[in-house]
Design a protein around this nucleic acid. Structure first.
Lengths: 213, 213
DNA sequence: CCATGTGAAGGTATTCACAGCC
DNA sequence: GGCTGTGAATACCTTCACATGG
């Protein structure tokens, strides 16, 4: 195996594989072939093998991949081998749902702090997290938190991001439907829910025209 | 301008442009250049021009694009020129947040029905939508609904999808963290929130090593 | 014999550079 | 002069085919 930079698209698929491997491990299997994993996660087997080939030889020919070992390795590559602590900005409907969301823990992600500007919310507790005043958000700098989730209205998003970056946040998952500006050292992934729904009709053929797209 | 199939990546960006154009229109502008739009939405100006070139000549050289006209055209391409009615399956924390989410309307998307299996929820009303029994979900076939949002637990996702497809749903936005199988005529976009957060640490350089990735 | 790992081929999307037009 | 529209060049990703090894 030789040096290869890992393509972005591969990085995007790694969490998919990781989840598939963890489910397989729960079923008690020790090995899985690229073909079985392919059926399970919905990616071609050759794509899976190519993806894995970027970072080492983990499989045994004729057998498959050692599930535990491979899962551990993917976690390391994704830098999920340590618990990642996250802060939530904005505890509205969406923010509340994220606080309650059980899916983060499988990746070792943990929302340990939440901030809002609404005095009615500050001080209340949800899922073991006490909502704090956003004016005090700088304090996250002392709490070993590297990730942030933005669930504030669009108009407040840039300000929230600026304050969080100043507090030392390195990665941001942004649910606000807008572009946010950040220094290059910080990574932002914007996830605009309405936009995802909006591109669905494109793929729905109009009645009477089955030829497109 | 010649015939071109529109690349998927372009389709993915069209809703971004559309949102940017609508915000610009609200500011009272009539024309916008690819450069200004680029600053606004965070895509290069040449990428924007190339994207637009796939579906026609909408710009005026030396001037820019007619905002209204272009927005209308993008809506047509995305098939958002009619109101799109959607059904929500699963009114838990995330589902409730989606019912309350204000962002859908700018794209002409409207959640007009919600289903759950929890008897405590059935019959209650949220944001003008009365929660119905999922056992009666087949009734959506008579209600001119083409889109569905899946916000049920993973274990229930495939069943929910099967029932919705049987009821004539053509496009699905799936929040359940799993692959779902559907007939080829139906389009699914899976949006796994935890997974998006999980690929963020990869882009965060470890302390003391600034050379990767 | 079975399943991995990987060069090579093929396809798709991005970037460039500039001609064309207002 | 300024901005669009687009072929050509480049970069990137996927798919194939098969050599390789347990």
């Amino acid at each position: 195996m030789r040096y290869h930079r890992i393509p972005d698209e591969t990085v995007r698929r790694l969490p998919v594989y990781l989840r598939g491997l963890m489910v397989s491990a729960n079923q008690g299997d020790q090995y899985i072939s690229s073909g079985s994993l392919a059926d399970f996660v919905g990616v071609n087997s050759w794509q899976i093998r190519k993806d894995f080939s970027y970072f080492g030889d983990f499989g045994t020919r004729g057998v498959g991949y050692d599930i535990e070992k491979l899962a551990r390795e993917i976690k390391k590559i994704l830098r999920l081998d340590v618990i990642r602590r996250a802060v939530l900005a904005g505890v509205g409907d969406l923010g509340s749902a994220l606080l309650a969301y059980p899916g983060f823990s499988v990746y070792g992600l943990d929302i340990v702090a939440a901030f809002d500007i609404d005095p009615n919310k500050i001080g209340r507790s949800m899922n073991g997290v006490t909502i704090e005043d956003f004016a005090q958000v700088d304090a996250v700098a002392q709490r070993d938190i590297s990730l942030a989730i933005i669930a504030v209205p669009r108009a407040a998003a840039q300000l929230a991001v600026d304050r969080l970056v100043a507090a030392g946040i390195k990665g941001i998952l942004n649910f606000a439907p807008c572009k946010v500006s950040i220094p290059r050292r910080v990574k932002v992934i914007t996830l605009d829910i309405a936009m995802e729904l909006a591109r669905l009709p494109y793929y729905i053929p109009r009645a009477g025209r089955m030829d497109e797209p």
